Simulated scan of single mutants.
Amino acid sequence: MDLKLKGRTALVTGSTLGIGASIAETLLREGATVLVNGRDESRTTAAAEKLKAFGDARPVAGDVSTGEGAEQVAAAALALGDVDILVNNAGVFTPQPFFEIPDDEWERLFRVNVMSGVRMSRLLAPAMRDRGWGRVLFIASESALNIPVEMVHYGMTKTAQLAVARGLAKTLSGTGVTVNSVLPGPTWTDGVEEFVREMADAEGVSEEQMKSDFVPKNRPTSLIQRFATAEEVASLVAYLCSDLASATSGAAMRVDGGIVDTIT
């Protein structure tokens, strides 16, 4: 399927690894120019070089969780030309019991997971509106709806992303700019692999056994009963970035393996 992304430029925050890197690769395969973002300049450059195997990938380093860093990334991106697509993917998670989460950790997750998208959208979406075409995506999580007891602060940030995305979609109503959220379920990435490895060590089982057992045990409502791949998430994101998804805005699209046990 031709998603008609040739000639479009996409900025994907937090795209040196994991879901972000898979989104970047998928958009490149569809013909878009992709601006690869990470906090560390050398890692960002290395990731962009690797992604050049699939198309026109360019590094744009900077920490989008700070106001100064977001402005730096936006300025560097715009110096390369118009940004048509913004994928707010930068995010962190830290499993921690509720009563042990200090204030600064609540605030850190909010800065990275929520304010990065707020800032980047504020910096880049007005120009999309003025040109009459644009796509803004927030990579949220099924944890926005099923708050995980082992990381309530993470779930809170993902719920906040849904509110921001819906409000921004209303703000940009009728402009040709769509805004949507994507809600992955448990997805096998480098960060999740490390998390599962630590759980396996703590419980004295193999990493493969923990990987196999994690979703059925911890997310029993999953209909696919496994981790999704980053590529499966990226496929939905790429569609929502395309011309073909022009009638979809203000939506929270799930690629959660059926974990959320509601019809809507």
Rank of each mutant, 00 (worst) to 15 (best):
F54N: 04
T9S: 04
G174R: 05
E208G: 05
Q209D: 14
V177S: 08
M210E: 15
K6S: 06
E105Q: 13
V192A: 01
T9M: 09
S246I: 03
G134N: 06
F99K: 10
R39T: 06
E207L: 03
L80A: 13
A21G: 04
T248Q: 13
V237S: 04
G185F: 01
M156T: 14
Q209L: 14
V164L: 14
P220K: 08
E68K: 09
P95V: 09
D63P: 02
N89A: 08
E207V: 13
R129D: 02
L109D: 03
L240E: 02
M120D: 07
L5Y: 01
G38L: 06
F195D: 10
V196F: 05
A234D: 04
S246D: 11
F214I: 08
L35K: 01
A77Q: 04
K6L: 05
D261L: 08
A245G: 11
P148L: 14
L183M: 11
P126N: 02
V83M: 08
D213I: 12
G167N: 15
I23S: 02
L168A: 10
R135M: 09
T175K: 06
V60K: 02
I263G: 00
L35G: 03
G38T: 14
R8V: 02
R166E: 15
D190L: 09
C241L: 12
M1F: 13
E207Y: 04
M199L: 15
L28H: 05
R122L: 10
